[in-house]
Write a protein that binds this DNA or RNA. Structure first.
Lengths: 129, 129
DNA sequence: ACGATACTTAAGCAAATGCTTAACCAAAGT
DNA sequence: ACTTTGGTTAAGCATTTGCTTAAGTATCGT
C-alpha cells in the first residue's frame, strides 16, 4: 500500500483508454497472448505492447513469457481496488444526502406551522429515530 | 447513451489525477464554491478551474453560477457508471473462473484414476449440477 | 540450416495534459 | 465611488501520451 494515490493514478489512467479497456475486456474472458490481444485492435503491435505496459504498470494485468509467447491475464484484485474507491465515494455521498434529509426534517419540525416544502428524501432515516 | 466509450474515457481520465480525485472527495461531502474547492490544493486558481472543467466534461461534477460564486456538486449517477463498468468486468472474470473450475472438474472426472492436481475453485458450482 | 513467428527495442513525432503568469470582468462589501 | 472578492480568459511552456516505422532478437516448425 505504498503511495496509494499513485496506484489509483495508474489504474484510472490505464482504464481511460478505449483500446486498453478492450484489452481488459478480452482478458476478463481468459488469458491470452500478445498477438492474439492485438488482433481486434487497429494499430501496430508495438503500440499494443505499449498499452500492455501501461496496464502492467497499473497492476491490472500481469504477464509472463514462456518460450517466445508472452501470456497475459488480469489481476482481479486491482480491478477490485478501483471499484472500491468509486464505491466508497458514492456511499459517502449517499450518507451525506441522508444527513441533508435529517437537516431538512429538523428544520421542518422547528417551524411546524408552515407548509412542508422540503420533505426529507428518506423519511425513515432521520438522525435521532 | 451516445458513444458510451467516450463517456468512460472522460470519466476514468478525470479520476486519473490526484487533485481531481481530491476535488471529488470534497464534493462528496457536499457542494461548495470554486475557491473553497481550491484551498487545499497547492496550485493556482486557473489550474483548479481547468481541473473542474475536466470533471464537468466527464459528467462527474455539475456547476451553476449564482451572482459571482460558482457552486459545484457531484453527479452521483456518473459515479455509478464508472463503478458499474468495473463491476461488470470483475464479475465477468469471476464467471469465467467458475467455468474454468467446471472444465478442470470434468477433466478430473475423465481421467478419474490419476491424482487430482487441479481441484476446482468452487466445487459446488459445476456446469451441469 | 532456414524461414516464419512472436515479440522487442529504439527513434521520432503530433497532439494532449498540467501547469504557469498576466490581464480582465463583474458582483459584493464599505 | 472604490476596493475586495470570486472567478474568467488567454497565452505560453515543459512533459507526457499514443501512435508510427525500421531494425533488431529469440524461438519454433520443417
Amino acid at each position: 500500500m505504498l503511495n496509494q494515490s499513485l496506484a489509483l493514478d495508474l489504474m484510472f489512467q490505464a482504464l481511460a483508454d478505449p483500446s486498453r479497456r478492450a484489452m481488459v475486456d478480452r482478458l476478463c474472458r481468459g488469458p491470452t497472448s500478445v498477438s492474439e490481444l492485438a488482433k481486434p485492435l487497429a494499430m501496430s503491435l508495438p503500440a499494443v505492447v505499449q498499452h500492455l505496459q501501461v496496464l502492467e504498470a497499473s497492476g491490472l494485468v500481469r504477464t509472463e513469457k514462456l518460450g517466445r509467447v508472452r501470456t497475459c491475464h488480469i489481476e482481479p484484485r486491482a480491478l477490485c481496488t478501483a471499484e472500491q474507491w468509486v464505491n466508497e465515494r458514492r456511499t459517502s455521498w449517499e450518507r451525506n444526502l441522508d444527513r441533508l434529509g435529517d437537516f431538512l426534517a429538523e428544520e421542518a419540525q422547528q417551524d411546524s406551522g408552515k407548509p412542508d416544502n422540503n420533505p426529507p428524501r428518506k423519511p425513515g432515516n432521520r438522525r435521532k429515530p
